[in-house]
Nucleic acid binder design. Structure first.
Lengths: 134, 134, 134, 134
DNA sequence: GTGGTCTAGACCACT
DNA sequence: GTGGTCTAGACCACC
């Protein structure tokens, strides 16, 4: 019903949870004010330690993605980032894209196909919510 | 004169070396058969432990990016990956692009701007070789 | 009409109530013998659990700030602390001021400005009664 | 030799460590590039769990106060905040000072004495490095 | 019920 | 040697 993580991945489990929640929010599969499962609940579900989920939730709260209300639960925040257009943010994205192109080159994929893949991913946005934690 | 790495970064130093070499190759700043600096040389240059560079070179060789010839030195390999168009490779790129879009969303950057940034990075390819691992 | 509390804050709600009442008294916005709203009344107003307000009132009574008279209501006490000048109290204030200066340092604010801010706060005392617990 | 914390305080131990390190830096008892004791070392010294210190160090790094160099240790950062004068920072200090004055009022300490105490604390800055974690 | 803190002890990655 | 992650299980504060 909820997210699936891979304990054997080289990216830590708490980070996988963070990434997955952020991905779900970006894809509108998780809307503002939605209540996330409680730490213990999710821990049981994933059969991992509650501390690991607590760490993920704390980091997400620190990033302003979710908010914790004492004794009530944790909820998805309203506005992700109301800033109009940050230069640092654009540089950040540019750097990520550079890394994608570097890897594409070493996989033998021409830039044209990267463009196509980007269009493909954008077109199917909000559709695939499963599978994004290798 | 050669690559610059940041010991403070949370990405391990050996990984920074790997990323930098692969980026230079992708940008044709390092062409096949080019000789890389020796481990000791580079270690002195960066004032870091030779073991760290050895680890990076080993991993690069394992990936088929460079070639170590005993007694001669280490050299950039010829063809990165001559496969025409691997499905797994495309899925790999698609996944990376998904992550970029997720982060762009949380930075408040619309998809249009991501497209623009991709074009910008492709247009300036092979030009900027400095600075991509902080 | 009355105090406003923030359930999102990391300081507990009952503590916010305590702080707010004490601040209002210190600023003479609440004078001795004034009747506070009843627990049920306030609970309805803030739409929070009556237990939370009861806890705050209990603590305020324990500190001698307010007085609960069964069947009549709760009232602001007369003299906060008539002691002339307690050494322990001064040490207490000194410690708090130390913390302020430490934080000011890490915010890049020189001590001169802290002095100015103190004068500013003292000058505008009893004027602003809203907003001091987010 | 190093900091002393109180396990029975209502402020969590990891927070006490954070506060103490920041206080020492503010008082120049800890200068940039100084190496902090290792997690295990400090854990032995304080006879508390290494995880608790790890949490404190991580938070301090997140705040930009210290920096971790993989496999080497943790060090005090150089510039705390080079910003000239932030309005939000001043408001932050103002809010803290308001709280100090509120408490001073309830302790029966007049504002004049608060002023004196502030001068006293500033005058003796960098002198007392012991005792600030009640 | 909720999340927050702490302990004990383990394993891993990096230098 | 360093810090980073995870587990098991405990206790507490808040609502």
């Amino acid at each position: 019903m909820w997210l699936t993580i891979d304990p054997r991945s080289n990216t830590p489990m708490y980070q996988q949870i963070i990434d997955d929640v952020k991905a779900r929010i970006a894809k509108h599969a998780l809307t503002p004010a939605t209540k996330l499962p409680s730490i213990r609940e999710l821990a049981m579900d994933l059969t991992i330690n509650p501390n690991t989920i607590a760490k993920a939730y704390q980091e997400l709260e620190r990033e302003g993605v979710i908010e914790v209300i004492r004794g009530k639960g944790t909820f998805v925040c309203a506005a992700p980032t109301p800033l109009p257009a940050d230069a640092a943010a654009r540089a950040d994205v540019r750097e990520l894209l550079t890394k994608v192109l570097v890897q594409a080159h070493h996989l033998g994929i021409p830039f044209d196909e990267v463009r196509q893949e980007l269009e493909h991913v954008i077109a199917n946005w909000t559709m695939q919510v499963e599978e994004e934690s290798p």
